[in-house]
Amino acid sequence: MREVRTRRLSVPLHTPFVTALRRTTTIETVLVEVVDSDGVSGWGEAPQVWQVTGDSLAGSQACLDGPIADAVVGRDADPRATASLVQRCVVGNRSAKMAADVALHDLAARRAGVPLAAHLASYAGVAGPAATQVRTDVTLSAGSADELARAAIARVADGFGTLKLKVGTDAATDLDRVRAVREVVGPHVALRLDANQGWDAFEAVRVITALEDAGADVEVVEQPVPARDVLGLAHVTAHVETPVMADESLFVLEDLVEIIRLDAADLVNVKLAKCGGLTPALELLRVAGLHGFGTFVGSMMESHVGLGAAASLVAAVGTTSLPDLDAAWWATASPYAGGPHYVGDRLVLSAAPGLGIDGLQPGGEPTEGERA
């Protein structure tokens, strides 16, 4: 590996993204480029989501420019040899680790002349060709019942068949919000709920049971309780019929072991920024599947680099549930030349080697903090 380059990016959204944890109108991320001795580049990104990972742009950029660059520059660029160095060289900083790990895999795929999904399938020992596109759900930002209903109608018109409702801001009115959406979209659109830790265990059971009694036909409820309340998560899972998914409760393998031990969820949501990249994500999906847990891949508010990597992971190894990979859809435009793009509810992967990204579009230059 010859060098590591970092840039900060701010990508505007066409619609504010609102959850029980935060509201944002931009994707804030650190773009990393790793360059090998032949001048071939691989791309990754480190998204900033203070309320979930705690990682900042400044911290991720300093980590990538410092200990991660020190660990990989001058070494073999193959992720089989280098990915473990990224994970060991610093404590925490998983968004930065994600960026470096994705970039290493992107570089390996480019060197092999294959799309990232095909590289990951080979890396994981999966037989058969990788998919070239991945369907996704789309999120409805938290809001009033009327706002959610209007957004639901618009998203179905955009071609999405699975809607994820952000709830958890007010347990007393969450039932009305979900019922309002179900009423306007009818029975053939799948509904998911994401409480983003907004309820306690007893509120969660009350709300979910009421939804079941109302016939709302909710496919899954994601992270109903605070992240560290794994016992509470297990309580909810044991007392409702609707499948429960662990998201913020799962970052790394130790978290998954605790979820398995307590039988605390039905499905687990693996995100690259939580676990540190594609390499640990592959292991989490493998272990969850071995223990009979449903598997799901999601994302933070990331640009097309992170979303392309996550979609390539799904295309390579598959999951038991439709993924949540709409984050870059919220962007007004892709800042990159090449890479994946959306067609209705599908994220279509580039057929070019790696992620198919060839740098920033004209006008997509970093907002601040460029370093090499």
Score class of each variant (00 low, 15 high):
Pro47Met: 05
Lys164Phe: 03
Arg5Cys: 08
Pro129Met: 13
Val240Pro: 00
Leu211Tyr: 11
Tyr123Thr: 07
Thr319Asn: 14
Arg177Ala: 05
Val11Leu: 11
Gly308Glu: 02
Arg7Asp: 09
Val72Arg: 05
Asp255Lys: 00
Leu285Cys: 06
Glu370Tyr: 14
Ala288Tyr: 06
Val35Leu: 14
Gly308Pro: 04
Phe251Val: 00
Gly369Ser: 12
Leu116Ala: 15
Gly339Asp: 00
Gly159Pro: 12
Asn93Lys: 12
Tyr342Lys: 02
Val221Tyr: 01
Pro340Ile: 01
Leu233Trp: 04
Ala372Val: 10
Val317Ser: 07
Gln61Ile: 07
Ser312His: 02
Gly39Ala: 05
His239Lys: 00
Val184His: 09
His239Ser: 02
Trp330Thr: 08
Gly306Asp: 06
Ile260Leu: 14
Gly42Ile: 03
Asp194His: 12
Cys89Tyr: 07
Val30Asp: 04
Ala58Asn: 10
Ala238Trp: 03
Val126His: 09
Leu253Asp: 04
Ala316Leu: 11
Leu64Gly: 07
Glu241Met: 15
Asp194Asn: 13
Gln51Cys: 11
His105Trp: 11
Ala81Glu: 15
Ala46His: 04
Gly59Ala: 12
Thr173Ser: 15
Met98Gln: 13
Pro187Asn: 13
Ser312Asn: 04
Gly44Thr: 05
Pro79Arg: 10
Leu349Cys: 03
Trp43Leu: 11
Asp174Thr: 05
Ala145Asn: 03
Val18His: 13
Ser144Gln: 04
Glu302Tyr: 05
Gly54Ile: 01
Thr162Gln: 12
Leu64Arg: 11
Val18Ile: 08
Leu282Lys: 15
Arg182Pro: 06
Met301Leu: 14
Val270Pro: 04
Val35Ser: 06
Ser312Val: 02
Trp50Pro: 15
Ile208Pro: 10
Val257Gly: 05
Ile260Pro: 02
Tyr123Phe: 12
Arg177Tyr: 04
Leu31Thr: 02
Asp247Leu: 00
Ala351Tyr: 08
Gln48Pro: 04
His304Thr: 09
Val317Lys: 04
Gly339Arg: 00
Glu368Val: 11
Ala309His: 01
Leu285Ala: 06
Leu21Asp: 05
Pro115Phe: 07
Val134Leu: 13
Asp326Ser: 15
Leu233His: 06
Thr169Tyr: 05
Ser350Cys: 02
Thr15Glu: 13
Ala265His: 02
Tyr336Pro: 07
Ala108Gly: 11
Gln197Tyr: 10
Gly364Pro: 09
Pro323Glu: 05
Ser95Lys: 14
Leu349Asp: 01
Ala238His: 04
